[in-house]
Amino acid sequence: MTRFTASYIKCFFLAAKVELLDKLIINGVINPITAVHQIKNGGILTNSYLNEIAFDLTKEIAQALSMDPDKQWARVQEIAERTKGNDSSMKVDVELGRRTEIDGILGYVQKHAATPAPLVEYYYQSIKALE
């Protein structure tokens, strides 16, 4: 039987938390923007206005979660590029009249933001209005 030290277990859970927060930022940017504006994932890269909004939203979320905004923006762009022809799950949920995961994504960010995050609030409320 393998014995795990407390530091190993702590390190494992910290790594898992960082991975979940990384995913949360990607979903917190791509999903609500694509759902509200009814675009494919790549639209946040090709539409200059939405690209600027996506950048600002990434910064807000990253700051709320004490993460590096530049690193997270690079990740958002990478995922948007890789999935540019896809519809986000939130966009599909909105189109089909289903509840979205907005509470677990931007709702989580709202609860952890120490400073005002107006874009987070806007996209949270916009998705709730579409549900």
Rank of each mutant, 00 (worst) to 15 (best):
I33R: 04
L57R: 04
F13M: 04
I33Q: 01
Y108M: 10
A74L: 14
Q110W: 01
L57W: 13
V92N: 00
F12I: 11
A114C: 07
S66L: 14
E60Y: 09
G97D: 03
H112R: 14
T115W: 05
P118I: 09
R99S: 13
Q110F: 00
N86G: 04
Y108G: 01
A80M: 11
V29A: 10
L45K: 01
I102R: 08
Q77H: 08
V36K: 08
T100F: 09
E78I: 05
A64N: 03
N86W: 06
G85A: 06
D68A: 03
I102W: 06
I33K: 00
V36D: 05
A15C: 12
L65K: 07
A74P: 02
V92Q: 01
Q72H: 15
I26C: 12
L45T: 13
I26Y: 09
E81W: 13
N31R: 05
N27E: 04
K84P: 00
Q77G: 06
L14I: 01
D87A: 01
G43Q: 04
V29I: 07
A16M: 10
A129S: 12
V109L: 05
I127R: 00
E121C: 04
L96Q: 14
Q72T: 06
L130C: 09
S88F: 08
K128V: 15
N31Q: 06
K128C: 09
S88W: 02
A35E: 10
P69Q: 11
K71A: 12
F4N: 05
T34I: 10
E52C: 06
R82M: 14
A62Q: 03
I79S: 07
L57P: 02
I25F: 12
C11K: 15
D68K: 10
G43S: 10
I79K: 09
K128E: 00
V76Q: 11
I9T: 11
R3I: 12
V120S: 06
I39W: 08
V76M: 10
I102F: 11
D56M: 11
K17A: 14
A114R: 15
Q77F: 03
T5F: 13
T46S: 14
A80S: 11
K84Q: 14
M1T: 13
A15I: 02
N31E: 09
Q77V: 14
D22P: 07
L65W: 10
Q110C: 11
V76I: 12
A113W: 05
S48T: 14
S89N: 11
D56V: 00
G43M: 04
V18G: 02
S66W: 13
E60G: 03
P32S: 12
K40Q: 12
K17T: 13
S7N: 12
V36S: 08
D56C: 14
D70G: 07
T5L: 15
D93P: 02
N47K: 05
V18M: 09
K91G: 00
E95W: 03
K84E: 09
Y122I: 08
S126E: 12
V94L: 00
I105F: 05
A80G: 13
A54I: 03
E101I: 04
K10C: 01
V92T: 13
V36H: 04
P69M: 10
F55G: 02
M90G: 01
R75I: 02
E52P: 00
I9F: 04
K10A: 15
E81G: 03
L20E: 15
